[in-house]
Design a protein around this nucleic acid. Structure first.
Lengths: 186, 186
DNA sequence: CTTGACAAACCGTCCAGACGGTATCTTAAT
DNA sequence: ATTAAGATACCGTCTGGACGGTTTGTCAAG
């Protein structure tokens, strides 16, 4: 008999909480900080409760992956709808989303994902599928050297943000973004 | 009294072996595969022996970091010596080294380092210092938007190589490299 | 009264590091 | 040139703790 037993049941909310906490923990303490004990405790749920929603740790990480790639997909789709030019459309949408990511609340989530991605071979595989799927889908419009390069540069900037290795100020960011958009059009 | 007790002492060689094995293990089994037991055993040394050379696990990772950034520094320095143009010289050297990395034997080592970097907050910090130190050193010649962008793009490509997410063929690589060099000159 | 949503105790494994020892190398006094 | 005295380079075992996962129990909603 505990508090959680008496509070109103809201499984979907608890599930979301768990994902959120997992992201935050890895941000603050590195990937090693994402343990079942730590996540469940920080989410105010018992370990059994966590394992009820996600049968094992991998499932939790997969949940994170799906949650976040889902948001990424929707954001990209949204951006693509507002772009009339076919050539490089996906690349520009990708740029917009990645550049916008820095201030987003979800940026934390993306950071954990990246780390987990590199750590877990399984997630590395899933990410590979995500990339190749999109590359295949837009092979007609976004496979030029310029487009590829632009996306790589965005990834590099994103990595720098994660590692906080460079400190790129706002005007510089805008200049770089403009240049990358130009690359996507050539 | 064991065999290893009687073999000739060669501390520097053993130390090198340990670093090499640590890099290889993380490549083959992910960062989780880098345990003191696994590393020491694969290097043909006891755990005690490993801990003699590196007093704790962090020291081992730090050793890897220094080993590899040392090589990186030397490679970059070498490249810079052959470049008569001051503006963007560091960036071009960086590009050369990163692009050459894909086939290098050390590429494995760099992969483990990247992973460990993202996983271990301490190493993240050290990497940050490496980057800012170099950025400061070449602030006069390599801080333009073009140079930054070129380096970011190289990082992105490197990340893609690690994740094997894109499969960039050789002609495309060369085209991209040429474009980035042009960026470093503008 | 059945089932979904948890709690709490527990288990086996793995791992970092400590520890106490032994063998080889170096140095320096004889 | 010898050799005693340390320093250095290892070996092999043990332990305490963390961590993923299981099991069993409990409550509440439908």
């Amino acid at each position: 008999m505990s508090i959680a037993h008496h509070r109103r049941k809201q499984p979907e909310l608890v599930r979301q909480q768990l994902l959120e906490v997992a992201a935050r923990l890895s941000l603050e303490q590195g990937a090693a900080g994402v343990t079942l004990d730590a996540v469940s405790q920080a989410a105010g749920v018992s370990k059994g409760g966590l394992l009820h929603h996600f049968p094992n740790k991998m499932a939790l990480l997969n949940g994170l992956f799906e949650d976040l790639t889902g948001k990424l997909d929707r954001a990209i789709e949204e951006e693509m709808r507002n772009d009339p030019v076919a050539h490089g459309r996906f690349t520009r949408a990708y740029l917009s989303v990645v550049f916008a990511l820095e201030e987003e609340a979800d940026a934390q989530g993306w950071q954990v994902l990246t780390i987990a991605l590199l750590t877990e071979p399984q997630l590395r595989e899933r990410w590979r599928f995500w990339v190749t799927d999109h590359a295949d889908e837009f092979v007609g419009t976004d496979s030029s050297a310029g487009c590829l390069l632009a996306r790589f540069a965005a990834d590099g900037l994103w990595l720098a943000d994660i590692l906080k290795s460079h400190d790129v100020d706002q005007p510089m960011r805008h200049a770089m973004r403009a240049q990358l958009i130009a690359l996507s059009q050539q």
